[in-house]
Each structure stands twice: as structure tokens, then as C-alpha cells.
Design a protein around this nucleic acid. Structure first.
Lengths: 171, 171
DNA sequence: ACAGCCATGTAACTTGTTACATGATTTT
DNA sequence: AAAATCATGTAACAAGTTACATGGCTGT
């Protein structure tokens, strides 16, 4: 739902045309997640179908401006209101991979753990370097994303160690 | 890709029929992620379409047994070999929400941070309690999943605090 | 003239997901 | 006899994603 909701959030700020949504979304998220322009239009079409956005009369057919409907404003409000991930924990690919490797004999779990550890450490070093290079005054959003990535990487490393411990017995 | 790959992993262990895949998947992941049975069949159909699995002659039409093809074995091997999440960091809904709330004025960021903090703390307490109740001898997979959830929740809380700090200036 | 950005959109596809229809076998 | 579990599958949809087709406008 992230992209749909993001578009609603951007339109709540200011009615905009499709291409503008792409650029403001990328600016808001510090360029970390490039947004394919085609996706903006397909998403807008679906939001319109669902009655969450509408386009003002296309005075300029080459620049169609979109606005939120009342329903769209409500959908946005509940997105902001409800915390992320309340009920079902989403499937975690790394966890699934490790557990399946452990429960089936098809591969050596410790190989997987080791390779993952290396990849994750590299990721952590990369984000650490980027954090050093960023400007705390101007790159607040970018820094927050880097924080999130670092924290996730550190957590992954901790978890990989726990796997080693808990699966220790069964080589 | 998790479900597709999981099915490949289970079939590598032992050729099975659809319903069996559901139960062994749920057993391998300690029941944390129930798998809709319909999805098993649609996924099997897609895997067959892509030449990764094949069903032995349906001697018993009411119990169709699936096996890996050579291509399927290779796909499984690369899934196990390649670490998760090498190139593009996946979109993070919580991060997007906070950044959009911060960059557009449509809502108070601190409300979002606070509500999320409460929900995440509850989640953390829930997993902690479940960990206490689990048996370290028999529930290894379940405990590892609980570890993963705890670590993620703790990371989320740390990140929310960082948000408060970094966004502190702009109410 | 040509490169590159601004701007629109459609078609097709992937993965995940649910709802529905159907029936056999097993347990209570 | 009824309920639960085992077992198969289809139809349809949601959300994300890419590739393609099209054209205007701007700067070099």
C-alpha cells in the first residue's frame, strides 16, 4: 500500500500531475526509492477507479492535475493513524530460507548463514560510509533512511549469530 | 519469491503432493505463516509453466505428486546460494510514512511516531512472552522466528527515537 | 539538428492472495 | 449422521513492475 498511500499524501499537500508526483516522491524519500513513472499512472488510474482521487477537468490535456476526494482524504488519514504491521507479521525471506535449509537437508545451513553475514556486513559498511558523507543539516531524510538500513543490518547480524547458536547442534 | 522457493526446497527434500506442501511448509516455519492451500496450487501451476517442477504421471488423480526438474534444482541452488537483498533495499512502509508525514504538512509526525512506538512495544512484549513460554528443546524454529521479531521490534523502537531526534526541530 | 528532460499513457506480466466449487476419507 | 480433515483445483483480484509508444519543449 506504500505507493498508493504516498500518492495520496502528496496530493493532500498539493494537487499535482503525474510526473510531478514522481519527482516529489523521490525528493521526499531522498532518492532512495526511484519510482517508475509508468507506475504512477497505473496507480493513479487504480486510485481513481476506487474513488480516492479525481482529476480536475483536463483544461490542459498535457498536464492532468489530480486531487483527493473526500474518500481519499479519509483513506490517507487512516493510513497515517494506523501503525504499520499490527496483526500478521509479514513473511521474512531470510528467516524462511534459513528455516527451510535447516528443516530440509538440501543444503548446509552454516554456508547460508556465513554468506548472508558477509553480504550484510558489507551493506552495513556501505551505509556507515554514506552516513559519514551526508550533511546532517540538509540530508535529514536521507540520514533517517541510512539509520533504518544500518539498524536492520545490525539486527540481521545479531539474528544470524542466534541462528548459529540455536541450530548449533545439528551441523 | 519466498513461497515459490520454499516449495522448491520442500520438493527437493521429497516429492510431495500439493496439500502435503502446505502442511510441511507450516511445520517448517512453526505455524507462523499459514499458507492458503489455494496458493499452493496456483504456485505449483506457475512453477510448472516455468519448467521448475513436473508432476509424475497422475497414477492417482486425487493425489498428484510433484518433483523438481533439473532447472528447478538449479533455481533452488541459487536461491540458497545468493544472500537475501543484495542490490536494491526494499521499500520500507514505516520509513515512507514517517518521511512523507515530515515532508508534507498533512499530519503531525510526532503523533505517528508515538502511536507506532506503542504498537511496536506491544509487539515486543508479546514476542517476549511467547519466548518465555516456548520450549528451547523442541521449538527451535519457533524461537528463531520470535528472535527475529524481537530484534525487528527493538530496531524499530531505536529508529523511532532517532526520528524524534533528527526531526526534532520541525514540530 | 540532436540530446535530454517533461509529460502522458497502455499492455503485459509477476507474486501474492482470497473466495468459491467439489469431493473422498476419517473421526467423533 | 455429522463434522473435520484431506485433497484438488479455478476465477478473480491487488499491488507492484517493466517495456513500449508518443509527443512537446529546452538547451546546446
Amino acid at each position: 500500500m506504500s505507493i498508493k498511500s504516498s500518492i495520496l499524501a502528496l496530493l493532500a499537500e498539493e494537487p499535482t500531475h503525474g510526473y510531478g508526483l514522481k519527482t516529489t516522491f523521490e525528493a521526499s524519500t531522498a532518492g532512495a526509492w526511484p519510482l517508475n513513472i509508468g507506475q504512477v499512472y497505473t496507480t493513479l488510474a487504480r486510485l481513481q477507479r476506487d474513488g480516492l482521487v479525481e482529476s480536475a477537468e483536463p483544461n490542459d490535456p498535457a498536464r492532468r492535475t489530480w486531487t483527493l476526494t473526500q474518500e481519499g482524504r479519509e483513506a490517507l488519514r487512516s493510513w497515517f493513524e494506523e501503525p504499520v504491521e499490527q496483526d500478521a507479521p509479514p513473511r521474512d525471506e531470510l528467516a524462511i530460507k534459513v528455516l527451510l535449509a535447516a528443516s530440509t537437508g538440501s543444503t548446509d545451513v552454516r554456508d547460508i548463514l556465513q554468506r548472508q553475514r558477509e553480504a550484510t556486513m558489507e551493506r552495513l559498511q556501505r551505509t556507515t560510509r554514506l552516513k559519514r558523507e551526508a550533511d546532517p543539516q540538509t540530508d535529514v531524510a536521507w540520514l533517517l533512511l541510512l539509520d533504518a538500513m544500518s539498524i536492520k543490518a545490525e539486527g540481521e547480524l545479531r539474528w544470524l549469530d542466534l541462528c548459529e547458536v540455536r541450530l548449533g547442534g545439528k551441523g
